[in-house]
Nucleic acid binder design. Structure first.
Lengths: 218, 218
DNA sequence: CGCATCGGGGACCAACAGGTCCAGGAAAGG
DNA sequence: CCTTTCCTGGACCTGTTGGTCCCCGATGCG
């Protein structure tokens, strides 16, 4: 999970191992807190306390709160993409997609649908507030969708998916269903809506399979 | 739009017409500001200024900020449901659903996908912060989905939709696609993802139509 | 070992947010 | 009208939050 340094340090002057560790600790704490409380509802004092650091360290590693938030966007994006790469990089069949769905649902069910998607909720909170954060999030979403569409491309090339399937649109649809599912599940404190949403998107992809393996209805 | 009093006044003591108007003015201003900046990023001073009122009036009509926010949740929910009732109450055919989709897309394209859904963004921001707001939002989503599923039920009863279609699940899926579409469109400052998401959901519903009218692919 | 940096602790500050108060003006209601 | 209640203006208070500062300790390097 937190191997190597997922957090890209702002290279400039020489930097010690201890410094990197502290920076990582701050980001990790900010990540945790802002995941459950939201970005704007988390204070720097909260982060300071949770990371067992002091004010000066926060400002030693980040110019201000906005920079910390931006670093967090990068950090979280890297984590999500890393995780998703694991589940999607070898995607070659519809059943692989189902496994991917199940993993997401299971993870989210651990907190009864609460908190939603780390990227999605930041996107909602920051898009109209920090242009730079928005564009980083946009890029991350694009990379995430590309992991999906690459998999769908492989399925199409191998003949599993029909030629008239559009991997990019299917990936966007699936991502929207995922994000919408996260949102509704969060409001409901219940994973069920997320399951329904993902199943809809998968059913839609299924309709582009070459051999209609299962019964197409229901 | 703002006919009658959408904002339910907290009936208790006798209340003058002027008082109602002021309360409405505050809610209207809070609605506008919090729609573009988000709830937590909007201060009471912002609201005070935008509504041309004073601090004492804010606290005369609302106990504190949390109460104002909760009133806004009600207010916005009523507005959305009112609007949606217009577009969904008479829904009886697939083309009606397409018209509904087009109206939402067009409205959102006016601001290039920005700001997202007034209810969805509040849900993200408040769900982990104000239990009461969350449950009101949950109810509103349920009512919204019911407008959709009622329409789908009518379509099923009239034979337009096959018997094996599940209106509730279809409505949830459509709602998730809508919310996810709003979210991605907001991050992208572009309506396109929302269109793709809604089209996916509509295509999915289309697959449950009795007579496959159009070409099913593409 | 001794200098130059880097890293850390925590007191301190200023601005701003939410929230209070009171005095005066407008509406009801008799 | 004239009393009572409601409504409004805006000054004021106070806790919190982001942000600064200074001094000391740790670390790396010749």
């Amino acid at each position: 999970m937190s191997d190597e340094q997922v957090a890209a340090p702002t290279n400039r002057r020489r930097i010690s191992q201890r410094g990197i560790a502290t920076r990582e600790r701050i980001l990790e704490a900010a990540n945790r807190l802002m995941f459950v409380r939201g970005v704007n509802a988390t204070t720097l004092d909260d982060v300071r306390e949770a990371s067992q650091t002091s004010k000066s360290q926060l400002y030693h590693h980040f110019a201000d709160k906005q920079e910390l938030v931006r670093a967090l966007v990068k950090y979280r994006g890297a984590l999500v993409l890393q995780r998703e790469r694991g589940g999607l990089e070898r995607l070659r069949s519809f059943s692989g997609l189902v496994r991917w769905r199940n993993a997401l649902v299971q993870a989210n069910s651990l907190n009864n649908g609460r908190y939603g998607c780390g990227l999605g909720s930041m996107a909602v909170e920051l898009s109209d507030q920090d242009e730079q954060a928005r564009s980083m999030l946009l890029e991350t979403f694009a990379a995430w969708e590309k992991l999906i569409s690459d998999g769908l491309h492989r399925m199409r090339d191998s003949g599993a998916l029909r030629q008239d399937a559009d991997p990019e649109k299917l990936a966007t649809g699936l991502m929207a269903a995922l994000q919408g599912g996260y949102l509704l599940a969060n409001a409901a404190h219940n994973v069920a809506p997320m399951e329904v949403a993902l199943d809809m998107a998968l059913e839609h992809i299924k309709s582009f399979l070459s051999q209609p393996s299962g019964e197409p209805t229901r």
